[in-house]
Structures are given as structure tokens and as C-alpha cells.
């Protein structure tokens, strides 16, 4: 037997041959049907009566090439707002999540505050919060730089997203089995150490994919700040649109967002799938 094995590669089993054939067949069918659908779209869409106009106004190669560098430059502001919002959201979200479960009676007001906070900021549309805080607070006549809608718009995003992120943290904390808490308590750990060293590390790991999805949503919602002033990418696209009487800059802006969000979404899905495999 050993002799036969050393002589060459193992002969393929009947099962392997069958599975290979199956795989080739599904590949062929998938490829064929995809080609058919996309081919039809490519051929049929240009036949539509308005296609030429749509192409000129939305998919204008020349406009695209001319505006892309400017759009990318404006996108840096989106990324900056995003980047300094994230740590604040993470901290505030975690604090709110913890505050909602405090049992110390002296801290009861904190608990009420955290509950109201999550209810309010999850209940109001983001764009309204951005308007109210972004225009409202600078309207108080604060001195510079505290009258900047750039700051208060970001604050609005941070508050809204902290409310969502807090709820996700809370669901993570609740998903850690009660036996983990019991084991930690039985060792004589104090409640705050049980939370900090036993519950939270497990809870946070579990909600990473869900929080990734929040980050992706945040990256897109940064564009809402364009309504109150900062010249980020959406605003910049609007400027180009007016200048060139062409909508292609919006398509360019959409493509830039996709270039960031699609890989991030895929990565979040990958993390989620990995976690599911590990837990089963």
C-alpha cells in the first residue's frame, strides 16, 4: 500500500470526480447567466430615447476627469471629520452603555440621562439633529472658533452615533453569559473589575462587526454636514454642478464613497462570518 502511494499522486476518488464536475457546471451556468444579463443591459440601455442626454449630463468623461482631483481634495475633509468623530463616539457610546446599567442609587440621574439620550438621538433623523445643533448652537453668538458649524455639525454626528453605538455595546454586554459573571464574582472580584476584565473584553469583541457597519454609515452621513457649511465632498460636487451645469461630479462623489465603503462592508461581513464559524 505504501508503495502505491509513493509512486504518484493519489487517484481521485469517485466523490471528488463528481464534485469537480458539479463545480464546473455551476461555474459555467453562473458565468453564462451573468454575461447574458449584463450584455442585455449594455445593449438595451443605450437604445432608450433619453440615453444620450443622460450620458452627457451624468456620465461625462471629460467633466469627470476635470472634477475628480477637486472632489478627492474635498473628500479629505470628510475623512478628517470621520477620523476625529470615531474615538469620541467610541468613548461616549461606551460610557452611555455603562451608565444605562448602573445600580448605584446616587448615580440614578446618570442612568435616566443615558436612557433619555439614547431615546432622543436614535429617535430624531440625523439630518434634523445636524440642522438643530449645527445652526442652533452657533446661533447663540459664541465667540470664534466656537461659532463654527463645522464643530457643531460634527458634535451632532457624534451624539447621534454614540446613541446607536451605545445600544450595540449594551447588546454585546447582555450577550455574555451569566455564568461568566458568576465565575468572576465567585473569585471575589469587585463588580467594576468583573465588568472591566471579564464582561467588556468579550462583549466588545462580539460587536466589532456591528460597530464596523456603524462606521460605514457614519462615513456616508458626514456628507450631511454639507447642509450647514463645511465644503466637504458633497458640497464641492454641488459647486462643480452649478459651474459646469453637469451632474457628473455627483456620480464621481458617489464612486469615491463606494471606493471606501464597499471594501469596508466586505471586511465587516468577513469578520461576522469568521465569528459565526468560531462560535458554532
Amino acid at each position: 500500500m505504501t508503495e502505491a502511494r509513493t509512486r504518484g499522486p493519489l487517484p481521485r476518488t469517485r466523490r471528488q470526480i463528481y464534485e469537480d464536475r458539479l463545480r464546473r457546471r455551476s461555474l459555467l451556468i453562473a458565468g453564462g447567466s451573468t454575461a447574458l444579463v449584463f450584455g442585455a443591459l449594455f445593449l438595451l440601455i443605450p437604445l432608450a430615447p433619453g440615453w444620450e442626454k443622460v450620458q452627457r449630463v451624468f456620465f461625462n468623461g471629460e467633466v469627470f476627469a476635470r472634477t475628480l482631483p477637486g472632489l478627492l481634495e474635498a473628500f479629505v475633509l470628510d475623512v478628517a471629520i470621520f477620523a476625529w468623530s470615531v474615538p469620541m463616539i467610541a468613548v461616549l457610546g461606551l460610557l452611555v452603555a455603562l451608565a444605562r446599567d448602573v445600580s448605584n442609587p446616587a448615580l440614578y440621574p446618570l442612568r435616566i440621562f443615558a436612557t433619555v439620550f439614547t431615546d432622543v438621538f436614535r429617535g430624531v433623523p440625523v439630518v434634523l439633529t445636524v440642522y438643530l445643533i449645527g445652526f442652533g448652537i452657533p446661533g447663540l453668538g459664541l465667540p470664534r472658533p466656537w461659532n463654527s458649524p463645522y464643530i457643531w455639525g460634527t458634535v451632532a454626528l457624534v451624539l447621534t452615533y454614540s446613541a446607536y453605538v451605545a445600544e450595540i455595546f449594551r447588546s454585546g454586554i447582555e450577550s455574555v453569559h451569566a455564568s461568566q459573571r458568576a465565575a468572576a464574582q465567585s473569585l471575589g472580584l469587585r463588580d467594576k473589575d468583573v465588568m472591566r476584565y471579564v464582561i467588556l473584553p468579550q462583549a466588545i469583541r462580539r460587536v466589532v462587526p456591528a460597530q464596523m457597519n456603524m462606521l460605514i454609515a457614519l462615513q456616508k452621513d458626514v456628507a450631511l454636514l454639507s447642509f450647514i457649511g463645511p465644503v466637504e465632498i458633497f458640497r464641492q460636487a454641488g459647486v462643480y454642478k452649478s459651474l459646469m451645469a453637469n451632474f457628473t461630479p455627483y456620480v464621481g462623489a458617489a464612486l469615491i464613497f463606494l471606493a471606501v465603503t464597499v471594501p469596508a462592508t466586505r471586511y465587516a461581513d468577513y469578520l461576522l462570518a469568521k465569528q459565526r464559524r468560531q462560535r458554532s
Binding site: 455564568s179 461568566q180 458568576a182 465565575a183 468572576a184 464574582q185 465567585s186 473569585l187 471575589g188 476584565y197 471579564v198 468579550q202
Partner: peptide
């Protein structure tokens, strides 16, 4: 609790 140790059926390691 620091004076009484407890071990569980399901181990409950962290």
C-alpha cells in the same frame, strides 16, 4: 467570596 472558592460544571473559564 475571596475566602470561598467555587468551581462550576461548565468550567466557566474566561
Amino acid at each position: 467570596r475571596t475566602r470561598i472558592g467555587m468551581v462550576f460544571q461548565s468550567f466557566n473559564l474566561f
